[in-house]
Simulated assay, not measured.
Amino acid sequence: MPNKPEHPCRIALGDEGPLLVEGPVEVTCADGSVAVSDRFTVAVCMCRRSRMYPWCDTSHRRRKRPREEFRDPAD
């Protein structure tokens, strides 16, 4: 019989930014290392820009988006 937790783990997916997971959590990284957090909610980096990887440090916000060229409204 599968092990059923009292409350299922909640994970929030967004369009941009981190994956929000209700904690505490253990994350096994690709290199086999394990990161542990006992916080009630953790932000797991999905863009791999974080200096605290696998935890999000909001580095995804620093990415500059292409600027639209100024256009003459008369065109």
Rank of each mutant, 00 (worst) to 15 (best):
V27I: 14
V27D: 02
V27F: 06
V27Q: 07
V27C: 05
T28P: 15
T28H: 07
T28D: 03
T28Y: 07
T28M: 13
T28S: 11
C29I: 00
C29K: 15
C29L: 15
C29M: 12
C29F: 11
C29V: 00
C29S: 12
A30K: 07
A30P: 11
D31A: 13
D31Y: 13
D31H: 13
D31S: 11
D31L: 10
G32N: 11
G32C: 12
G32M: 09
G32K: 03
G32V: 08
G32L: 06
S33I: 05
S33L: 04
S33D: 13
S33V: 07
S33W: 02
S33K: 11
S33T: 15
V34Q: 09
V34P: 13
V34R: 01
V34D: 12
V34N: 08
V34A: 07
A35H: 15
A35G: 13
A35Y: 13
A35I: 14
V36T: 13
V36I: 12
V36R: 04
S37T: 11
S37N: 11
S37P: 14
S37H: 08
D38H: 10
D38G: 10
D38N: 15
D38E: 15
D38C: 04
R39W: 10
R39A: 15
F40Y: 11
F40M: 12
F40H: 07
T41C: 02
T41H: 02
T41S: 04
V42R: 01
V42I: 09
V42Y: 01
V42Q: 04
V42A: 02
V42G: 00
V42S: 03
V42M: 02
A43Q: 14
A43N: 14
A43L: 08
A43S: 14
A43R: 10
V44R: 01
C45L: 06
C45G: 04
C45W: 06
M46G: 13
M46D: 05
M46Y: 03
M46K: 13
M46Q: 15
M46F: 05
M46R: 15
M46P: 00
C47E: 11
C47M: 06
C47V: 07
C47K: 12
C47S: 12
R48F: 06
R48I: 00
R48M: 04
R48G: 09
R48V: 00
R49N: 06
R49E: 00
R49I: 00
R49Y: 05
R49P: 01
R49D: 00
S50R: 03
S50C: 02
S50V: 05
R51Q: 10
R51A: 10
R51V: 08
R51L: 09
R51F: 05
R51D: 08
M52P: 00
M52A: 14
M52K: 14
Y53N: 07
Y53M: 02
Y53K: 08
Y53H: 15
P54L: 01
P54E: 04
P54S: 06
P54A: 01
P54M: 04
P54I: 01
W55I: 02
W55E: 02
W55F: 15
W55C: 05
W55K: 00
C56I: 05
C56L: 09
C56H: 03
D57Y: 10
D57L: 05
D57M: 09
T58S: 14
T58G: 00
T58W: 09
T58Y: 10
T58V: 12
T58F: 11
S59K: 06
S59Y: 02
S59E: 10
